[in-house]
Structures are given as structure tokens and as C-alpha cells.
Amino acid sequence: MKAADPPVPVPRKPGQPESGTPASPSGPPDSGPAKGTRKRRVGPLLPYLLIAPTIVALAAVFVWPLIKTVIMSFQDVGRRELWTGEAAPWVGFDQFTDIFGDGEFWDVVWRTVLFMTVCVVATMGLGLFLALSMQRMAKGVRLALTGALVAAWAMPLLVATSIFRWFADSDYGVLNMVLTKYLGLDFRGHNWWLDPKQGFLIIGAVVVWGAVPFVVITLYAALTQVPRELEEAASLDGASATGVFRFVTWPVIKPVFQMIATLSVIWDFNVFGQVFLIRGNKPEPEYNLLGTYYYEKAFESNSFSQGAAISLITVLLLSGVAVYYLRQLLKIGEVE
């Protein structure tokens, strides 16, 4: 924020440790508005009126579909039932036992977890590194980088994926050309998709490339709010660079970092388009992630019930992360 921004009297510092948690190197709770007076009990209906439109909108779009998904997962709904309205037979937990008993499903789950972990670690690591580095860059370099990040972020998925697909093409791809011509390796005609490890390297690159702008820009903003004086004082006191980061910088950006990481986990867990498009709308079995596996079951194998069951399982798997996410949020929410 610039100094010219609207006056915010005694802005609360981000990363302020929540009251009750042991303080890192920061002062006492700031002298901002005393907590407790923040919330007040006014006309008890007003807050409900304020959230009503949101509730109505969410309910209108999600409630019945969600119930429908749960119902479908205990039935056997195919195209015929979907189209003709014929009653679908109830099958109890069959869909779930089928899925859990399917070896391919577990392969897909592990692959998804692994892929998600690698992507999130790479995205967050690169993002943090770049954001830290950006603070120390010349202004021109920083502006150019920001521009590139912004343009990358705005590119439609379909187009970005097409371009990465060309890059990695075996016959006319720039990647093979560069490796062969400039690095002297024999990558002529090399197919990156035959070995899923290499293939996922490319898909991971699309995912990470697409996610890094959001992370860098956000973390960079968080970093601008770390008091420079503290960093300097710490390093004059003889703290190493890692020490400064650990005790001064990290506590400030931690909440932001956690939030982005959590969102990244959710987004990367549900990756669909990147895999689907880059494999020409027909990913091979060894390229299936949960997102594409769901799609295959529901639309291609004509079992919308299996698809529904898989999506519920996905939600359950993700809710582990969600609990963490919620706790973070509610913890912060508590002290407001």
C-alpha cells in the first residue's frame, strides 16, 4: 500500500500473533480498537438479512445438487435413467464398495496425492523464493516480472495447455529442439508422454506455471509489510540470513502462506483441464488423476452414480485439508 492510500488509523499489522499465542518478536497487542467492542449485538435480524442473499444464492445452486449427488451415489443411474426419468434402482453401498475394491482407484488416489504434493511444494517454494527475491530486485526487473506474471495469469487454460503441448511435441516441439540443438543431447523425436514420469513433469509445469503468479504476487505483498527495521536490527545483531527469515520474516507472512497453500492443495487436487487437454481429450489410464477418473466413470462409462460416489470420496479426502483450513480460519475468527 502506498502512503497515499486512504488513511487507516493505526493499521493493524498483518501477522500479528493472535492474542493468547506466545508472542514472536513483536510488541504487545496493538492499540487498535479494543477487541470485544468490535462485535455488538444489534437488531438481531440485521446480520441475517445481510448474509441472506449469499445463503440464498449458494443454496439455490448447491443444496439440491449436493443432495442429488448423495442420493445418486446410492443408486445406479446411467444415461437411460437420467434421460427418461425412469426410477433408478437402489444399490446401497455398492458403488462405494466397487470403487474401493478397484485397484485402479487406489492407484489414481496415490497418483493424485503425489502429484498434488509435488505441485503444491513446487508452487509454494518457487513462489516464496521469487517473492523474496523480488524485494531485492532493481525496480525495472521487478516491474517486468510482475507484467509477465500478470499476463501468464490471464491466459485461458485451453490456450496455455495447447502451447505447452506444442513445446513438448516429439516432432516439432521447441523443448526437444532446444535440448538437441543447444545442449547437445539427442532428444530428436523424443516422446515425453510414453513415460508418465516425464509426462507428469510437463503437466506439472503447466500447473505450476499457471499457479505461481497468484502465489508470488500475494506473498510479495505480504513481504512488503515486514518491517525493514526489524530485519536490519536482527542482522546487525549477527543473525544469519536464515535466522532473519525464520524469526522476523516468516512469522509475518505465515498466515498468508498457509492460506495460499491450503487453496493450492484444493485446486491441485481437483486438476482436470490440464491433464485432459494436454492428452488430446483422451488421457491414457496412467495419466488419470481423480478429476479425469471421475469424468471417465461418469460420462464415458455411463455410470453417473459411480461418478457421484467418486466426487463424494474426493470431498471426504479433501476435508482433511479443509479441517485444517477451517481451524485456521475459525481460530482467527474467534479473536476478532
Binding site: S170, D171, Y172, G189, N191, L194, G280
Partner: peptide, 20 residues
């Protein structure tokens, strides 16, 4: 086939157009 032998037929026209 002296290109990538593991592709499908999507590149047909492109290969011809490039005189490959």
C-alpha cells in the same frame, strides 16, 4: 515412419504440409 511412431493421426496434415 521416421517421426515419432507413437502418435495418433492428428498430425497427418501438418506432416504433409511441412513436407516431412
Amino acid at each position: 515412419n521416421h517421426g515419432d511412431q507413437t502418435k495418433d493421426e492428428q498430425d497427418h496434415a501438418n506432416v504433409m504440409a511441412n513436407e516431412k
